[in-house]
């Protein structure tokens, strides 16, 4: 089953239609990426194959997305210079600068 041309974005679905929003540019760790405007930042990162959202201070353990509803704090990142932003519920905007904190 796993696909040859794997695309994290679902194009065809038996029940759902994903209306395409505006494609916007954003930066992750200084590099350019694209995502859809107003989707949660976490979705845009995962759609670009980025799963490690931060690295813990002491033990250097990698952390990613977990709850998607702003409860677990596993996805805290630095967004436009502001630390501790929950990227699972914060919406993507054109030109955003996203970093691991």
């Amino acid at each position: 089953m796993p696909k040859e041309n794997y695309n994290p974005r679902i194009e065809i679905h038996p029940i759902l239609n994903f209306e395409k929003k505006k494609l916007v540019k954003f930066y992750f760790e200084g590099k350019e990426y694209y995502g859809y405007e107003d989707e949660p930042i976490a979705c845009a990162l995962i759609a670009n194959g980025i799963k490690v959202f931060h690295i813990t201070k002491e033990k250097k353990r990698k952390r990613g997305f977990f709850c998607a509803i702003g409860r677990c704090s596993s996805c805290l990142m630095k967004v436009d210079g502001k630390k501790n932003v929950m990227v699972c519920i914060t919406r993507l905007k054109e030109g955003m600068k996203i970093e691991r904190q």
């Binding site: 799963k51 353990r61 998607a68």
Partner: peptide, 11 residues
């Protein structure tokens, strides 16, 4: 805690 361990609702 490895990235890729997700809540089912989150997925």
């Amino acid at each position: 805690d490895l990235p890729g361990v997700y809540g089912a609702g989150a997925v």
